[in-house]
Nucleic acid binder design. Structure first.
Lengths: 335, 335
DNA sequence: CCCCAGCGCTCGGTACAATCGAGTGCCAGG
DNA sequence: CCTGGCACTCGATTGTACCGAGCGCTGGGG
């Protein structure tokens, strides 16, 4: 553990570097009123902090910049309770007061909001289907052997699934199956529907069996089936100096599967921040991820997050993510 | 109009600049076997081309680069019939042979394909709803005063629309309205459904009226309601030198409304390419847009496009866009 | 024992000059 | 009309000098 002065110095280096994007020298550090010693003393402490792995220098005659470990210590021990500034708070409040309409649109707009608040890229993972119950269900015949299943879930989202059959089907068979399937599904979650009862009508039974298998299967939660809304990629671009970095981060953001896995990885370690190389993805070695789950009706159903350079304003990002996740959850809850 | 030699010189400057991203000097130009004169002659012709507005100079002692007008002349008069290389052709073929499943997924993947083929950002605008007929329709009660309408269209896409009512509704009223509305809509396009007949049942009539108005309204074609799939933003980033440019283009791509308007603007002028400032958007002054409509069952229903720097390989982009739009249309057609 | 003023050192950044070379415009002669 | 030749321009590169921010170390003082 670090003593009080070293902590103060580390904190100052981190906050200063976040603000200026420049290496921080001892003379800058002593401008902090909390540090009442001479630059020389600060230098010796900074050398110690460097030996212990919290700081580095880009070259001999430059100031210090934090390492991932330095940021980590800052986030865990040195940052104040994350508090959002009143203007942003206001913005979140009016956003959710006015929010209405389609779920997809709201999630997309939420990702934009979060990006605006933090000036980084924002990610919103749609609520998992496994906790939602089916409100209504319908089958439609699209072609001789193609049937589309549409389910409206309890939060108003629509889940569709096209199923290709071995045998040709008729309108009447599909209609019969539709009614039976609706009975089976309504009020249950998609993933846990009861197996269909036999009707004695051969083709309909086959149809129902195939549908049931595919629907339950398709609803199994997996990173590659989750829907993700990414907002503010343009804002993120501004945060990086080199086009190459931008390209790499963009290419990650385009693979929604990777994004979801990343968020889940972070949450599964019980953390809400992943700094630099703590992300398992090499091209994100200079990025940090701030995440929070959101709860609908007291159950965790989704995740939101912010992705930016390691040099990010963690307290602000944490605060924004916390507030937005909480309001988003409340918005989607039935109460 | 330009004489043969000037044309050849312009063509060489354009192709060379597209390849190298560097200003092209007279000595490079004469390496083209089609140009059998001395550098001095080329220089004088290039000076003429500059006076006429086809070329510029970044500075006195540099080679020439094409202006927007130069690119335009190249695209209109100098480029060979756009032909896709066999490998890409193969790629398109196998892509569409394997393509199946959800419409959304296919469109998203198509935008990725197009981006891969061209190394630029690609845009796919979903088929317009106005030419699709309703295959089935269903109402679901989400709350005391909220009703969700779900329609399955003839190509398998699902259109949903939540409607907030003045009055509370009951399950049975909604069910009644659902059946009536389904009769009304099935086989027609969403935008042109007949007005609902009066049932004599007060609440149901009110419900039907409100629904009908909102559904027809919501289906009216407008840039802001079109769905857009953008792919390959990361690839695009690589094409630009400055982060600022990347940011600006990204921020355009994030506003799907703007993207759709741009594509429509281009098509409405009867062109398939918009070069530099021909785009009305200031931040795209250094970008070009290559677009093509696609037809489903012999009717134009959507647009695809490629967005990159003005310094783009137009023949290749045109070829890719043409082939993909054609195959996409065929894929979505009922035949 | 901790602190700190002072000193010598390191190195990136800037400023400036010299040089290089790709490329131009122009002209006179074939 | 084309072209070889020539003077000129100007960005890019290289080299040099210098400045200054910042460091580590050390020896003296509270």
């Amino acid at each position: 553990m670090l003593d009080a002065r070293k902590s103060a110095i580390l904190r100052k280096v981190v906050t200063e570097h976040i603000e200026t994007a420049q290496p921080v020298g001892s003379s800058h550090v002593v401008q902090d009123p909390a540090i009442d010693v001479s630059p020389a003393t600060v230098r010796s402490d900074m050398a110690a902090l460097e030996r212990e792995g919290y700081l580095t220098h880009p070259h001999t005659s430059a100031g210090r910049i934090p390492t991932d470990k330095g940021y980590r210590f800052f986030v865990d021990n040195l940052s104040d309770a994350p508090l959002l500034d009143p203007a942003s708070h206001e913005q979140v409040a009016t956003f959710f007061d006015r929010a209405h309409g389609e779920l997809e649109r709201m999630l997309r707009d939420t990702s934009r909001l979060l990006s605006q608040l933090t000036d980084h890229a924002a990610v919103v993972v749609a609520p998992a289907h496994e906790v939602l119950t089916v409100r209504s269900s319908m089958l439609t015949r699209l072609g001789p052997r193609v049937v589309l299943h549409v389910a409206v879930l309890s939060n108003g989202s629509v889940e569709k699934h096209s199923v290709e059959m071995e045998e040709r089907t008729t309108d009447s068979e599909v209609a019969a199956a539709s009614a039976l399937l609706a009975d089976q599904l309504c009020g249950h979650t998609l993933g846990r529907a009861a197996a269909p009862a036999r009707t004695g009508n051969g083709p309909v039974d086959v149809l129902l069996g195939a549908l049931h298998a595919q629907i339950v299967d398709g609803a199994r939660p997996a990173p590659e089936t989750e829907e993700v809304y990414v907002g503010g990629a343009a804002r993120m671009a501004q945060q990086f100096a080199a086009v190459d970095q931008v390209r790499e981060v963009l290419s990650i953001l385009e693979q929604s599967f990777v994004v979801v896995s990343l968020l889940h990885d972070v949450l599964s370690t019980g953390q809400s921040v992943a700094i630099g190389t703590e992300n398992r993805v090499e091209s994100l070695a200079e990025c940090s991820l701030v995440v929070a789950p959101y709860e609908v009706d007291d159950e965790v159903v989704g995740t939101i997050g912010v992705l930016g350079p390691t040099r990010m304003n963690y307290p602000q990002a944490l605060a924004a993510v916390a507030v937005v996740s909480q309001r988003l959850g409340r918005q989607l809850s039935s109460g």
